[in-house]
Design a protein around this nucleic acid. Structure first.
Length: 429
RNA sequence: UGGGGCGUAGGUCAACUGGCAGACCGCUCGGCUGUUAACCGAGAAGGUGCAGGUUCGAAUCCUGCCGCCCCAGCCA
């Protein structure tokens, strides 16, 4: 038994392949079966006079997505897609597929496809996106492993803590409400004090009613936290990571990127250093370009796109106004109106793929910030402890996996970057 | 939540100014020894999101509801 991507090394040898039918064509006494096994697709040629009668009869029953086993000889043939095909000596049905398979190799609407997501995944483009996602995930682990980071898994069920945006809640025994985590960062900071350099890799949840191409209610985030890194170190780590992820996909998933019709030239130029633009300079640039943005406003999607004009690689926008950012970000000693943080904006309209910052490490300053924001002090006691016992400069960031996959794949919407996306109006399949 | 758009056959879309609701894909049968989302011939089946209203007559106009898409806000 051979998998399709290995066929090339079995030229002129007899093999057996299992997979699913994608197309069938017949010209009377010669017939073609195109099948997929997850590693690739292969065309098989069935000549009536050269196969058992049972195989020819089995061909007549084949429909899209029938599971089959093909027996034949691998032949190089210029007429075959991919240059290789299978001259069949036998064919058998493993699992029949009724003729009403819904996802045809034709144009369908988004809603129809999402209703059939469990079947849509079998389509070449969807499978290619899943392969790229998997490669990115593996590359994340390899990147951090090579740098002696420790992976830490932070809780998914939490008490109210972290950012203020929408939370999913559930009853939790006698403890009142529990919330699905929307970040592991605060726990990551505790772990960084224990282990030095850590990262988290897990699902996060936002109950916001966001209906855009960049939002899911359940998404995966990679959150490194590094002891003794300042904001500049933090950005260097980010550009190394993003560049590595792009490089790995170009190196090992180029075929999938081609399937997705990604313009790889837009990826090949991604390398450190990424341009760095301060928030204050960004506002000035935007105003010069005609934006109505005022110093102190957060940058909207339109502003981000305007700012990214002319850049071929991701860009850092750093040191945003304190009021626009979270309480835990460290005040900028050179400009107290701002905090030491950065967003990493991807080109081509993909927007923010990373948000990061240096964390406030001064106990009194952090306490004051928690009070200023009106946050419940008792919930943050343990977090403040990190500043009481051996406080340390540290920084980290959150990389949005789906946004990164969308950017690298060139997909129009993050819903195609995860097998079963969760959106406001999409809980099944 | 706000702004814009759209709901017609299993799918993708047509239908003029309100006047007999159609095409293609798919499906069934037949043909073809090199097809590439095959081609050729024949055939069957099937629809105006829901509820009202206007009208001799509504897919088309009006009101309400439901659903979806895009953009914005929030953020990864």
């Amino acid at each position: 038994m051979v998998r399709i991507h290995e066929l090339r090394s079995h030229a002129d040898a007899p093999v057996r392949v299992r997979g699913w039918v994608t197309h069938v064509r017949s010209s009377g006494k010669i017939a073609f079966v195109v099948a997929r096994d997850g590693t690739g697709t292969v065309q098989s040629v069935l000549v009536r006079s050269a196969v058992p009668a049972a195989a020819w009869e089995a061909f007549a029953t084949l429909t899209q997505e029938t599971a089959i086993v093909l027996s034949g000889v691998v032949r190089a043939d210029a007429r075959a897609p991919g240059g290789f095909e299978l001259s069949l000596t036998d064919l058998a049905v493993l699992g029949a597929s009724p003729v009403d398979y819904p996802v045809q190799p034709k144009t369908h609407g988004v809603d129809f496809l999402m209703d059939h997501r469990h079947l849509w995944l079998r389509s070449p483009r969807q499978a290619a996106a899943m392969r790229v996602r998997s490669e990115i995930e593996q590359a994340v682990h390899d990147f951090f492993y090579a740098r002696a980071f420790v992976r830490v898994d932070t809780p998914i069920l939490t008490a109210a803590i972290g950012e203020r945006s929408g939370l999913f809640s559930t009853e939790y025994f006698d403890e009142g409400s529990a919330y699905l985590a929307q970040t592991g960062q605060l726990y990551g900071e505790a772990a960084a004090a224990a282990l030095g350099r850590i990262y988290t890799f897990g699902p996060t949840f936002r109950a916001e009613k966001s209906k855009t191409r960049r939002h899911l209610t359940e998404f995966w985030m990679i959150e490194p936290e590094v002891a003794f890194n300042d904001s500049a170190d933090n950005m260097r780590l980010q550009e190394e990571l993003v560049s590595y992820l792009v490089e790995r996909c170009l190196e090992r998933e180029r075929a999938s990127l081609m399937e997705l019709e990604r313009d790889v030239a837009r990826l090949e130029c991604v390398a450190p250093p990424f341009p760095r633009v301060s928030y204050t300079d960004a506002v000035a640039t935007l105003q010069a370009k005609g934006s109505a943005v005022q110093w102190g406003d957060d940058l909207g999607a339109e502003d981000e796109s305007l700012l990214m004009e002319g850049y071929d690689r991701p860009v850092f926008v750093y040191n945003y106004p304190k009021a626009a950012k979270a309480f835990y970000m460290k005040a900028n000693p050179d400009d107290p109106r701002t905090v030491l943080c950065n967003d990493c904006l991807a080109p081509e309209g993909y927007g923010e793929i990373i948000g990061g910052s240096q964390r406030e490490d001064d106990y009194d300053t952090l306490l004051a910030r928690i009070r200023d924001e009106g946050l419940p002090l008792d919930a943050y006691g343990w977090y403040l402890d990190l500043r009481r016992y051996g406080t340390f400069v540290h920084s980290g960031f959150g990389l949005g996996l789906e946004r990164t996959v969308a950017y690298i794949c060139g997909l129009p919407h993050v819903r195609e970057t995860i097998a079963f996306p969760r959106l406001m109006n999409r809980l099944r399949p």
